[in-house]
Computed example of a mutant assay.
Amino acid sequence: MTTPVPAPETGGAKPSATRENALRPGLVARLSAEAVGTLFVVVAGLGVPLFTIPQSNPLPASLAAGLALTASMLAFGYLSGGHFNPAVTVGNAIAGRIRLKEAAAYLGAQLVGALLGAVTLFGILRTVPTISDSRAAFDTVTAGFGEHSIIQVPMAGVLLVEVLGAALLVAVYLGTTSGRNPAKATAPFAVGLATAVLLQLGQAIGNAPFNPARATASAIFSNTGSLGQLWLFWVAPLLGAALAGLLFRGFGQSAAQPQPAVSKAVPDRADGEEDAEPDAAWAHASAAPAAHAPAQESGTTGGDEARDFFDKRGE
């Protein structure tokens, strides 16, 4: 019973891996998906509060941003993995799920999408006759601390909230998109809800977005004081993302140690995932389900689409 088990794992996975590699979207397609998805997230996250009319908008801005992120992940996640946030990309890179050079390309695409979204909103503001100063309008949605915070939260307080919020958001993404999570198909909803909850907190202290691309887009079109504080909204969320990535990298290594029997399946599973996921810890963690169902590459029944959606493609 044990002799024929390794054969289907090794020999049967290679044709599937070859087919998957042939069908995998190219880097341009993935970067385009990241740019368009980030544009949608920024347009919803900044546009809803910018054009909110008191007592006329039943949808809170934080919930609108969370729903936009969910929709973007559902629409474009199968192409790029659905990051739409430099913090999420950095967390994936540190967790070993994407190569550094491709992570850098993702960050560039996210910034382009965010800036295009902000340009669009700024152009709409310029057409509204009742808004005399478009930059002053952007001040109301731009992240800041101290005098730029709604309740005058000092730098240390905003920094701690950004680190914690980004770490939690990246942890939700990494956990729900893990190859060992049976509920990974629900990742867009989990990440979107987490974003909505965190943004509700962030708005209360100073429009903390937990997304450096969104923070950059709003700061560029606001008054000059916001640009001087932009560094915090890059350093803090990336630090939180790094902490979450290191934590999940450690979990992947510790989970893989007691399972030497599946080591032969690791290269095949790594090839079946995105070409930007060479890290052994991630490969071992993703290959864990294969030990229970060696005849299937994904280790689940009918789970290929969910795995392709969030595991194989560019976490």
Rank of each mutant, 00 (worst) to 15 (best):
P4T: 09
V5A: 07
P6S: 07
A7G: 01
A13Q: 06
P15R: 06
R19G: 03
N21M: 09
A29N: 07
E34S: 05
A35E: 03
V36Q: 00
G45N: 08
V48K: 02
F51G: 10
P54R: 09
Q55F: 07
S62I: 01
L67G: 02
M73F: 08
M73E: 13
G77H: 13
P86M: 09
P86T: 08
T89F: 05
G91D: 11
A93P: 01
I98D: 06
K101C: 08
K101G: 03
E102A: 12
A104W: 07
L107H: 04
G113K: 08
G123A: 09
V128K: 09
P129L: 01
I131Y: 08
F138T: 05
T142Y: 02
A143R: 00
S149A: 14
Q152E: 13
V153I: 11
P154L: 04
L160A: 15
L164M: 13
G165T: 05
A167P: 03
L174D: 12
T186G: 10
P188V: 14
F189M: 12
F189P: 02
T195D: 00
A204D: 06
F210M: 06
F221I: 13
T224S: 14
T224R: 10
L227V: 02
W231H: 13
L238M: 15
A242P: 04
G245T: 09
G252W: 01
G252S: 13
Q257C: 00
Q257M: 02
P260S: 10
K264Y: 01
A270L: 12
G272I: 05
E273S: 12
E277C: 12
D279Y: 04
A288R: 14
A291G: 15
S298H: 11
G299L: 06
G303W: 12
A306T: 14
R307C: 05
